[in-house]
Computed example of a mutant assay.
Amino acid sequence: MKVAVWDTYVTKKDGNVMHFDIIAPEEIKDTTVIYSYGRDYLKTKGQDGQPLTSKECSFCHIETVKPDWEKSINQQGYFIYEMENCN
């Protein structure tokens, strides 16, 4: 399975910037869907309501799905790869 990686930087309520990737099947090109995945994730981190638009999230590249991502993608449609300030 090929997946699209969407590079995302969201300013948290405390002013720090979260850096994470939204990883979804490559067929999903509708940014409304991608942003909804990001907003769902932000809610789990207590950051609901923070802006998530094309300014914060953009397509980066296509790659082959990694085994640890595939389960999440099969269950919820996407995987979040946390990089910076996601706690």
Rank of each mutant, 00 (worst) to 15 (best):
E63T: 11
D21P: 07
F59T: 13
Y37L: 02
V3Y: 09
T11A: 05
D68P: 07
T64F: 00
G15A: 06
F79Q: 09
H19M: 04
L52H: 09
Y37H: 08
Q75G: 00
I73V: 02
L52A: 14
F59E: 09
D68T: 00
I73Q: 11
E56F: 09
L42K: 14
C60G: 13
A24G: 01
T64S: 07
M18T: 08
M83D: 13
G77Y: 09
Q50L: 11
Y81I: 02
I28G: 00
D48W: 12
N16F: 14
D48V: 00
E56P: 06
I34T: 03
P67L: 09
Y41G: 10
A4I: 00
V17S: 11
K45F: 09
T53M: 06
P67E: 10
K55V: 07
N74M: 06
I34R: 00
D48S: 12
D68F: 15
E82W: 03
S54T: 13
Y78P: 02
T31H: 09
K71D: 07
W69D: 12
Y35Q: 15
T11I: 08
E63L: 05
Q76A: 01
E70Q: 11
P67I: 14
E63K: 14
E84W: 09
N74C: 05
G38Y: 11
L42Q: 06
I62Y: 02
E63V: 11
Y81K: 12
D48Q: 14
L52V: 15
K66H: 12
P25A: 03
E82Q: 14
M83K: 15
L52F: 01
K29A: 02
H61L: 12
D21E: 15
E70C: 07
Q47N: 14
M1C: 05
G77F: 10
D7K: 15
T32W: 01
V65H: 01
W69N: 05
N87V: 05
Y81M: 13
E84F: 08
